[in-house]
Design a protein around this nucleic acid. Structure first.
Lengths: 222, 222
DNA sequence: CGACGGGTTGATTGTCCTCAAAGCCTGTGG
DNA sequence: CCACAGGCTTTGAGGACAATCAACCCGTCG
């Protein structure tokens, strides 16, 4: 695997496209990370805020013995690395080859201090991260392996257009570390869901999943 | 148990005492909830924001079959119910008799729209909730029962003044639902920690805990 | 006193983890 | 074109940790 990151064309878009209020000359840059590359590390200075243009990113924390908890996957369009603080609280890595747009945190803060609507936008994005984390605590604390996987598939379906055909960018281990399970358990549950006719595997690798019966899947998600 | 809530003296303090920027005439009110009383329910309109003046509050979500995940305990000084949205995402209940200060969400938003420093304060509070949730995902997803209880005791010690004597306001079931365990497991782990000389039970009920060896406790928290 | 809420402890069960092996696909190099 | 290595996934067997079910204890309060 190639292990390097390449700078692409700089641009002067509204901040991360999402904070469209800012049409001042805030310079944003594009950057491509190869699969597996670290974008930033936990406790590193949070100098930039990112948006996924193509690909997928995992944000995770590690325990000292290597146990990993993925807090979120960031898909196309998602903003991540917005810490509202000096340091990153997660490590972020490219799940597959991934292109991001980035902007200096300082530029963002400068504008937010002057413009209330931008500040409110930062608050909205932070709140939606919080909401996701709150739902995920419920999943991690109280749901069975079956319920976790069902919730995961429905979340991915929703976020990847919701057409019932889910092309997962991440491997079983990533899914497991997101759901607080082992990769074997994830694999077993998926096999079981396949066995009872709720999903089918499409194509050659096992990452493309057709949700045959989303109603029944939703029922498993309590 | 008495089941009623009583209004106390209204006051015109800076918003919740915490958002001290607001010395406008934003009316705040005090209110007392008896032990076990609901302060607001999940999905109810979020008309007020609260601050604990005395007592303790639990915020939780329920699954349809009654499984409960407590997302946070709110202790004296903490602000809660700040949803930045129209609806509450948790149910909040008084763990013990609890007095809160409250302010209308609308007043808060009105000021935040005019004053960037207030908006930034809302963002800071939301960010610190997010940070707590992120740490808690790691705990719920990847830590053993021993590690969870150790983390809990250290968190409570820190938030209740950090003198090593922890007077827990909540019962074992609340702790369990916060840590993603059963009350029996919590009890067993506490007994074990007592057995190996890390903590002592003080007084007649089992809620007052002396942390004899915080260093060793911290080591269990990975 | 007796009921009740809260806590501890014991016995057993069950879910998920661990360890292990094998299959499949991709890419690489002869 | 084939052989082979490596990454990823599945599947099986056995084990461990926490859940479940149950009994009992202790204070408090009516």
């Amino acid at each position: 695997m190639l292990v390097h990151a390449s700078v692409k064309r700089p641009s002067t878009l509204g901040i991360l496209g999402t904070l469209s209020q800012i049409h001042t000359a805030s310079i944003t840059t594009e950057f491509t990370y190869n699969k597996g590359l670290e974008i930033y590390g936990e406790n590193e200075p949070a100098d930039y805020v990112y948006q996924v243009l193509d690909g997928a990113v995992r944000s995770y924390k590690l325990l000292s013995d290597g146990r990993r908890q993925i807090g979120a996957f960031h898909l196309v369009g998602d903003v991540f690395g917005l810490e509202n603080g000096v340091f990153h609280r997660f490590t972020a890595e490219a799940v597959i080859d991934t292109t991001v747009r980035l902007i200096k945190r300082q530029s963002l803060e400068r504008v937010a201090n002057a413009d209330v609507s931008v500040a409110r936008n930062l608050l909205t994005m932070t709140t939606s991260s919080l909401q996701h984390a709150e739902e995920h605590m419920l999943l991690l604390g109280r749901k069975s392996s079956m319920e976790r996987v069902a919730a995961f598939l429905l979340e991915m379906d929703r976020r990847l257009n919701g057409v019932g055909l889910v092309a997962l960018p991440m491997c079983r281990r990533d899914i497991a570390d997101y759901l607080g399970l082992t990769l074997e358990t994830v694999s077993r549950v998926l096999s079981k869901l396949h066995g009872i006719g709720i999903l089918n595997f499409v194509g050659t690798n096992q990452r493309e999943i057709m949700l045959v019966d989303r109603r029944r899947l939703a029922e498993m998600n309590v």
